[in-house]
Amino acid sequence: MNVIEVTKANFEAEVLKSDKPVIADFNADWCGPCQMLKPVIEELAAERTDVKFVSVNVDEQNELAYEYNVSSIPCLIVFRGGKEAGRSVGMKPKSEIVKLI
């Protein structure tokens, strides 16, 4: 499993305190574009060992979604050193996501 499921409980340890840059994929099961993006993220996670990929289910983790001002999904947020360093909203091709990193 290359993409780690995170919750409010382990968000700090897995994302904010990560040594590597993190791409957090905010998503939900009912969201079509999120399902489209999922295999792209999994593919990238397998290729890019220099970046950590995590998944946040917004239905279960609505506090995290609110904290990071996520109001549309899929939403990818890049974290570097515990700080937001970029984001992308909506379905994006792999090449665009690579540019985020």
Binding site: C31, D59, N69, V70, S71, S72, I73, C75, R87, G90
Partner: peptide, 16 residues
């Protein structure tokens, strides 16, 4: 976009 502005109520309504 995605920080309050949306073009799809059925996609993003749940956040509100």
């Amino acid at each position: 976009i995605g920080r309050g502005v949306s073009y799809c109520a059925t996609c993003d309504g749940a956040f509100f």
